[in-house]
Simulated scan of single mutants.
Amino acid sequence: MPLTSARALAGAAWIPYPSRVTSQGDDYPTSLLSGVEDATSGDDDQPRQGGLGFGLLILRIGLGVIMGAHGLQHLFGAFGGPGVGGFAHVLEMLGYHKQTTLLSWITGITEVAGGALVIVGLFTPLAAAGLAGIAANIVYVKFHGGFFQGDGRGWEFELLLGLCALALVFTGAGSVSLETNTPWRKRPLPFGVISLLLAAAASVVVIVLAR
């Protein structure tokens, strides 16, 4: 076999197709890179929105049911509650001496309406702020009774409810709710601050006018 033919066969064995120098402008199918991108995108480090929405739903139901049940006690005497007249007397014992009947109605309606809105997830920052305001007022009037509620004078239970409501003011209702394209769901922080300021102002007005 001629020498040139042997060299040609050897080169063909090592280079089965012509070599090509790639340039920066070459295009490659995105499917070839998708596996690498998926492996390094860090998706496993991101929170699962479905779990977050379900967790907020549990928090909303718990807070709304408890506050709403108290509101039904205060308004209609449900679940062995005192009703409007009895609750007005309780408010007098807590230090409210002016317009206690009106304050009973306002408190009960806020608890029932705010609890219902929180449960379904509608106007959540404002509803949760209203519930937080009620809890803050109770903590204020019971503050000197001590933290624990063993004798009925503590305020740790109201503090817990207020903190749950405060959390919802800034997180919003989450994905499992009636709020889908509302501005406060897209920008929860500024709307939460506004709602909290309104609730704080209302609480101050109640304390000043009713005590």
Rank of each mutant, 00 (worst) to 15 (best):
D44S: 15
Y17E: 09
F54I: 10
G83N: 06
L122C: 08
I119S: 03
L196Q: 05
R7Y: 08
L198R: 05
A210N: 13
T182P: 00
W184T: 00
W155I: 01
R20G: 04
F54S: 10
W184P: 01
T171E: 11
A135L: 03
L122P: 00
E37W: 14
R211I: 06
G150K: 09
G80R: 10
F54P: 01
V208R: 13
L161N: 02
G172M: 01
G86Q: 09
E111L: 15
L3Q: 12
A6N: 09
W14P: 00
H89V: 14
L59K: 05
V204A: 15
L102C: 05
W105C: 02
H144G: 11
A200C: 07
L72H: 05
T100K: 04
R20K: 15
G81I: 05
M1V: 11
V193Q: 08
T124D: 02
T40E: 11
S19C: 12
G62K: 00
A173R: 02
G154Y: 06
S175F: 12
G145P: 02
V21F: 09
Y17L: 05
L196S: 13
D38A: 15
G53Y: 06
G121A: 11
E158M: 12
Q73K: 08
A136L: 13
T180W: 15
V139P: 00
L198K: 04
T107I: 05
V206G: 03
L178K: 09
G83T: 04
L3E: 14
P18Q: 14
G146N: 09
L117F: 12
L59M: 13
A127D: 03
V36L: 15
V120F: 11
F143D: 07
A135K: 00
T182Y: 06
Q149W: 11
P16M: 03
G71N: 05
G114Q: 01
G162A: 03
M1G: 15
G55D: 12
L178F: 15
V120R: 03
G154H: 06
V139A: 09
G35A: 11
I66V: 13
V84Q: 01
N181M: 11
I134Y: 07
S104Q: 06
L63A: 04
L178A: 14
K98Q: 15
G174T: 01
R60V: 02
F54T: 08
W155L: 01
S175I: 09
G172L: 00
L166D: 04
T110W: 02
W105M: 05
Q24Y: 12
S175G: 13
G154P: 01
L209N: 13
P190G: 07
T4N: 11
L59Q: 10
G77H: 06
Y96L: 10
L33N: 10
T101H: 10
L102F: 12
H70K: 05
A167E: 07
A173G: 15
I138Q: 07
